[in-house]
């Protein structure tokens, strides 16, 4: 028995570095897409790399936006600037509360905001966060918090990508990388302040209606509560917001009530603006749940008015 356990232990000691070597080798010698469980895309959708590079250069802001693509495509710092507020948008594609917490912990003291706006998009809360982890591991600086959260994901693709990303960081393989501000196919333009503007105005109608689901895994819910609690300790008011979506993505009134009852007590305000842009979806949206620039401008005006009416806007 002892010799079996000793051999098993020695094999594990041998196999772990061997595994890392195979992952590094596999990631380097062939297009990544061929290996289903390594997804390293430097400069991926949503300009996370550029956003965090900019964030590292900034200081205090008035308003900090957190959340998924609804945050970084929904709140335009130029509009808030005109209203007299500095702001930064820390949203990223498919970001779930687990990744939001990583960014929150990393940047909250740097930005020391006077108001936090947290986009609460139910699918982001329900998700496992894998897509966002892969984005972070490819484009965000690697630190202990990100690696621990990635380990906790219990997902082979996340683990392999973490190994590969660590290797590239160690050898400085992406040190000279510069992300284009205008991304080709999507026509996404990065605007300083973390915002991404869709520069074309084509509407892709959604293929089917989306039904309400609210079942966040416990780690997502705990991360969300952590952000709210830490903000409270720091004395920063938090506004939870649901950004506008087209009719196909709107929930039934009773489901919206459920969310209202659940979220309202948790923050200083909960604003459900999901039906704030009615009418022809092509006018304000480019797909079922993302606004075009016209929609963003309209939403941001409505949002500023709502905050002012509730006395939540800090003095400019």
């Amino acid at each position: 028995m002892r010799s079996y356990l000793t051999d098993l232990f020695l094999f594990l000691v041998f196999a772990i570095p061997a595994y890392v070597m195979v992952i590094v080798f596999a990631g380097n010698v062939s297009p990544f897409s061929q290996y289903r469980n390594i997804k390293y895309v430097r400069g991926g959708n949503g300009h996370l790399h550029t956003r965090l590079q900019e964030a590292d250069t900034l200081g205090q802001v008035d308003i900090l936006f957190l959340g998924s693509s609804h945050a970084y495509r929904g709140f335009d710092p130029r509009i808030f600037k005109k209203a007299g507020y500095t702001s930064f948008n820390l949203g990223s594609s498919s970001q779930t509360p687990v990744q939001t917490k990583i960014l929150f912990d990393r940047y909250i003291d740097r930005f020391n905001p006077r108001l936090i706006v947290f986009d609460v998009f139910p699918p982001a809360f329900n998700g496992d966060g894998v897509e966002s982890f892969l984005n972070f591991l490819s484009n965000a600086p690697l630190d202990r918090h990100l690696m621990m959260a990635a380990l906790d994901s219990r997902h082979a693709t996340v683990w392999n990508t973490a190994i590969f990303s660590t290797w590239r960081t160690l050898i400085g393989a992406d040190d000279g990388f510069t992300e284009p501000l205008l991304r080709g196919a999507e026509k996404d333009l990065y605007i300083p302040g973390g915002y991404v503007e869709k520069t074309v105005n084509e509407f892709k109608p959604p293929s089917s209606k989306v039904h309400f689901k609210w079942s966040p895994p416990s780690n997502q819910w705990q991360a969300f509560l952590h952000i709210l609690a830490a903000s409270k300790i720091k004395g920063i008011p938090v506004v939870l917001v649901r950004t506008p979506v087209t009719g196909s993505h709107q929930y039934l009134p009773e489901d919206r009530m459920k969310l209202d009852r659940l979220l309202s007590p948790l923050a200083d305000a909960y604003l459900d603006l999901s039906d704030a842009l009615p009418g022809d979806p092509a006018e304000f949206f480019y797909d079922g749940h993302h606004m075009n620039q016209k929609g963003v401008e309209r939403l941001n005006a409505i949002f500023l008015d709502s905050l002012a009416a509730r006395g939540l806007l800090p003095p400019p």
């Binding site: 094999f11 196999a15 595994y19 195979v22 992952i23 469980n37 997902h155 082979a156 392999n160």
Partner: peptide, 14 residues
Amino acid sequence: YALLIAMIGLFMPT
């Protein structure tokens, strides 16, 4: 054996 394990890690469904 380590190569087989790595192949499982690379190609298994998640």
